[in-house]
Amino acid sequence: MRHRLFAVLTAGGLAIAMLLAVPVPVATQGPTVAPGAGVPRVAATPTTWTVRRTPDGKPDLQGFWNNTTYTPLERPKDVTKEYYTPEEALAMINRSAAAEAEQTVPGTIPDVHYDFTQFGLDRSQAPLSLNLRTSLIVDPPEGRLPPMTEEGRRRAAARAEARKQMGGPRDAVQNQSLSVRCILMDRNGPPMLAGAYNNNYQILQAPGSMMILVEMLHGPRVIPTDGRPPLPQNVRQLGGSSRGRWDGDTLVIETANFTDTTAYQGSSENMRLTERFTRVDEETLLYRFTVDDPATWTRPWSAEVPWKKAIGPLFEHACHEGNYGLYNTLAGARLEEKRAAEAAAGKPSN
């Protein structure tokens, strides 16, 4: 596995190079930081940077973006501060990159899998935006999800029981996760959060509409920004119903009308999501979202992820069309059962 070792070293080298090139805004760190303060500015961006505007005077958020991060949604239990030092952040990235490169034991059955370090699939090969935050959650200040309400806990238990009744993950296609079934992935959201790879987005801004194309699942989000009312409350969609508006130089997208299946982090179908997009420099689009779901959590919570400018184009991700893995998983399980039954009956298997 020599190439894997090389990849780890490369990742470390990249991170070091990034740190050298990136002046860290130490002075702005602290309990009263404004959104975006954890995002290092790129050295090449002049301090006189002003946001480019579209012909209708709105900030131009268009382009290709990537939201890859090594920062976990929730702050690790053994970390007590809001920001890492650059050295600590680098060490965290290197530990995570090393774990990613050696995700399985070479020579074992789980190792028969595509190698994340090849094909640009591991996070160290993405246009990584260095984030000194110790968690994506910025509110509550502890960096962790707020406590669940009694109703939220009851719902989680009921969902777990329902899953148990459905049987094992290989018993039926519906028992697999939405992402394995190519229905919804974390990149699609909402909220849109990175997975291990392919965390690519393209934003188009046209009068009356914002278009966010998520590369995974070729997932388009076309968001009306013309002030129209939301869909009727009884019309529920996996991705909800979104409306966009500008709050100064920040694009705000509000989404409701989710389904019970969407269940983001255990949310109810009445979750309200507010996403805020602010271009903080040429290279960085700051993405902040707030989840408000009083039926699930004792208080709203917010998270923040810098999106980094990326190189296009996006490619077609025909996930469902090529989902041989899912088919083979189910077919393999049925074959195993057939063989076991034949063995029990003393018949030869073919």
Partner: peptide
Amino acid sequence: KNAQLMEFNCVPFVEDLIYGHLRK
């Protein structure tokens, strides 16, 4: 006046058609 694209995520609609025969 309120024309908009509605979600038509049809994968769940065809799962029993494609994978139904592989159900335990």
